[in-house]
């Protein structure tokens, strides 16, 4: 083989890769995600729920706080598709409105947890040494806090001040979102740190470093995007955990006030009337369960989809069972401790 032919052969794989226009990282991920049937089902269910709570109140124009004692504790009917509560308020309207808050709390708390977790994990993983040691001890410490008792304590101590400061609705929202997010960043921090430790030694980061990229640019442009896969999965699961945490708080009567009917709050009001109005508890409970189940399945699907080691199905066959199960399952620990 002549010298020129050899160099042509060596160059060919690169050329082949660039000549495949239809596959991008996200396109691949999307196709892998669609292969996971239950994850697709979860995505559909969640989309329906999000559309319902966003558009629902504009279509279904029954007020959430119209008290009608003549129609109290009614089982589902044409006039009240989900029935009514002990004040005769329409449950469907309340659930559509409350669902917005439940889902918004989940998403906002996840964003806070991700931001904190990525910041702590990236700092620890990139700087290493004493900083890493201190931050990881802090993470361990936060992991061993009893979450719900602490959540209750903080909400109890700070609720009145924030209510005065921001008004009853916004105050409780900010407090709950901040506290739930602030108690859930630890798994993300550990994940990001582990990713950083392995990625910062990789050749492409070394290449960036040798080209003179400042540390901040190395982290932001080169390491972080490559560490995002597991973070996105953890974030998805965090949404579910935050929804459960908010519902637990409201269910204990310590979350949102009664005029803001989040799903957990409706359940709290319903639990003393179980024997003669079971529908009152079943609808919001099922809504929470479906949302959490859908999000957990989406997380499961994303974990499979965002793992670039996996080959797309079809040509080489779906990912082998062995590969599927050797993927670490960071999502597992998450929903268990809301």
């Amino acid at each position: 083989m002549s010298e020129s032919a050899r160099s042509e052969v060596l160059a060919r794989p690169v050329a082949l890769v660039t000549r495949r226009p239809s596959t991008s990282l996200w396109g691949d991920a999307f196709r892998r995600f669609r292969k996971h049937r239950l994850a697709t089902f979860g995505a559909v269910v969640l989309t329906i729920m999000v559309v319902a709570v966003l558009a629902g109140p504009f279509v279904y124009r029954v007020p959430i706080d119209e008290i009608d004692f003549k129609a109290k504790l009614e089982t589902p009917s044409m006039a009240h598709p989900f029935g009514t509560d002990d004040l005769g308020q329409d449950l469907l309207a309340r659930m559509l409105y409350g669902g917005r808050i439940s889902l918004a709390v989940g998403i906002m708390a996840m964003l806070i947890a991700l931001t904190l977790g990525v910041a702590v994990g990236a700092t620890a993983g990139h700087l290493g040494g004493t900083v890493d040691h201190v931050l990881m001890r802090l993470t361990d410490l936060f992991l061993s806090l009893p979450q719900l008792p602490l959540l209750l304590l903080i909400v109890y101590l700070f609720r009145d001040t924030l209510k005065k400061l921001l008004g009853p609705e916004a105050g409780v929202f900010v407090l709950i979102v901040a506290v739930i997010g602030g108690l859930r960043w630890m798994p993300v921090a550990r994940l990001v740190r582990a990713q950083f430790l392995s990625l910062r030694e990789k050749e492409f980061v070394e290449a960036a470093r040798s080209l003179g990229a400042p540390p901040f640019r190395q982290v932001l442009r080169h390491i972080l995007p490559n560490a995002m896969g597991p973070v996105i999965v953890a974030g998805t699961i965090d949404v579910a955990a935050a929804i459960i945490a908010e519902s637990s708080l409201s269910f204990l009567g310590l979350g949102f006030p009664p005029d803001i009917p989040t799903w957990g709050r409706i359940l709290f009001d319903a639990k003393d009337n179980l024997d003669f109005a079971p529908h009152w508890a079943l609808f919001p409970g099922t809504a929470i369960f479906l949302a959490v189940l859908a999000i957990n399945y989406i997380g499961d699907g994303l974990r499979d989809a965002l793992d670039p080691r996996k080959v797309l199905g079809g040509r080489t066959g779906a990912a082998t069972p062995a590969a599927k199960d050797s993927v670490p399952e960071p999502a597992l620990a998450a929903p268990a401790d809301p």
């Binding site: 579910a240 459960i244 519902s247 637990s248 269910f251 957990g264 359940l267 639990k271 179980l274 024997d275 079971p278 508890a281 079943l282 409970g285 099922t286 929470i288 369960f289 959490v292 189940l293 957990n296 399945y297 499961d300 929903p335 268990a336 809301p338």
Partner: peptide
Amino acid sequence: AFIGFSLPTFFTGILFILFFSI
């Protein structure tokens, strides 16, 4: 198992009461 840990304890508790007690 997946369904089991997606069911929050407060809802399982209510379902149990509805079924076994009521």
